[in-house]
Amino acid sequence: MAVSTETAPADRAGTGERTSRARRAGRWRTTLTFWYFVGPFVAGLLVFTYIPVIWSAYLSFFEARNTVSPASEDFVGLDNYVAMLRDDAFIDSLGTFTVFAAFIVPLTFASSLALALMLNKVRLARSFFRSVFFLPFACSYVVASLVWKMSIFNGVRYGMANSILDLFGIEDIAWLFDPSPPWYWLVIVTLRLWIQCGFYMILFIAALQQIPEHLYEAAYVDGAKPGWQTFWHITLPQLRATSVAVLMLILIAAYQAFDEFYNLIGNQAYARPPLMYLYNTALGTVQDLGKGSAGALILALLIALVTVLQGKFLGFGRSEGQ
């Protein structure tokens, strides 16, 4: 692992031995400091991420119901992978994710960029508005789900949304548990938008502040008008690297959607994203850790593949403006 080694100032007046000892002590201190800060995180990553992933890969080759340490005779090779790929419910869950991503990725991107552009123009109380929009990001999905489910979008007459509809004489809507029409997408998408827009907005604001002012000035000299023209030809190209990163982050977060589905709807066939299905298979009542692990690895590979392809096509890693 690369360690930044900034040597202690040498004692030029001292002997070579003293200088060497001081240098060694300095290096030791630097190394200690490095591990002091990095060690706990490396240990956490190892214990809570890498070991479970490796163990999960191991389990995926076994018939492992109600056990995390299957016997060698329970080895089933790739059977769990085949079973998951033939499992309609798992494939359907990927379909559910696709619909979810189709809504949430463009909406989050457009909303957070719009908020960032507006805040970048605001001169008055900018910090206040930035905080207001960022604050929901600090709220947990569980808490927000309960507020959305119990207060705003419950299906009875005193739910907030139904109360408003009632003013216009519209009958109560069971927002979450009647999929025809699929109002539950409105609940799920608005919740995630409310929580995550502020975070991506901050990323865009940071990128907007890096765009050199002289680019706009030069454009104005050349006759460009403020507004759509400069946004399309200067701002958006300059935000390219940030936009690509934001798109990838939103998509990965969508793949990992669990909390709001779990808390809002539960295990329903019509709105069951991949993680929800895998949770039920491995950790819920089914307790089939072999198939659950195989499904988790298939999903991880899918996320990695999509991320790499997206990065390749959209140019992840290129600098702003390239």
Binding site: A89, S180, Q268, Q287
Partner: peptide
Amino acid sequence: WTPTMETAVDDMMTRIVLEG
């Protein structure tokens, strides 16, 4: 009657009754 079987009939009922 395992949870997998229960999920199978739950999904069937949900799709017939709620999704047509």
